[in-house]
Write a protein that binds this DNA or RNA. Structure first.
Lengths: 125, 125
DNA sequence: TACACATCTGAATACTTGTTCATATGTTCA
DNA sequence: TGAACATATGAACAAGTATTCAGATGTGTA
């Protein structure tokens, strides 16, 4: 509490809160902190070109780690690290066939999320 | 070229490309590199709790920088920096009224993108 | 069992990024 | 004009992250 007050002293408007009613109304309508945190964590996964490329590749076909590495022009290790991130986010799934591990998409929302993101980019340019 | 070959030597499968046909088919179906880069840049904006919170606040009401700072419990400077990011991504717009600058949403896709992200999180848990 | 091979993982490194601090800009009002 | 105030911005720092390297794990085969 005292800590937060102190922090606010550094802001421009430490004396007069301009629209206290608005702040309260908006505050009460905000989702829980944890949900917003999870959402940010989720979108963070899409904030990397390599992971976006992997997902776009998997839109077309299931692929093994080795093939993905060749396609991306990156080391197998780099791909494997990123696949772990995608796996943790439950965006991809895998099946093992002997020594080879095949990855595929595990989610239906991704494509339409990407489509809408793409649409935004198009419209703003 | 030579660089890429050298890099591939470090991968697991430098001799035998396992599914060359799959790689070629997928490669030819991939969107342009630049588009994927832009898409990653776009989603990177959503990969931060503060920016997500700002956007959720603006879903409810237009707000000035000072009010946002109070609502978030962050300095005016921090909010201003993040608003710049959102502005560059053309996700928010602003209007000036005297000394006060009011920010509001500038895009229709955001809410539905968030809804789908949220839906994914719910389903995976 | 021993070897080959596809994948995984931990540590190290280079790079990116969010916040703060100090200060600049731009607006209002006396 | 000058003081007060809301916002914007540049530099610095701390924290996070993507890739590489080296080596471990696990699977198939001779």
């Amino acid at each position: 509490m005292a800590e937060q007050e102190q922090r606010l002293e550094n802001t421009c408007c430490d004396v007069t809160i301009i629209h206290e009613d608005v702040i309260e109304r908006v505050r009460s309508g905000m989702p829980a902190e944890e949900e917003l945190f999870d959402l940010a964590e989720f979108f963070k996964v899409f904030g990397d070109t390599t992971r976006i490329r992997i997902l776009y590749a998997l839109f077309q076909s299931e692929m093994c780690v080795c093939d993905l590495a060749h396609l991306m022009g990156l080391t197998q290790s780099a791909i494997s690290h990123q696949l772990r991130v995608l796996k943790q986010a439950k965006l991809v799934q895998f099946r093992r066939e002997g020594r080879v591990v095949y990855y595929s998409l595990a989610d239906d929302h991704v494509k339409s999320i990407f489509d809408q993101g793409y649409q935004h980019i198009q419209e703003r340019n």
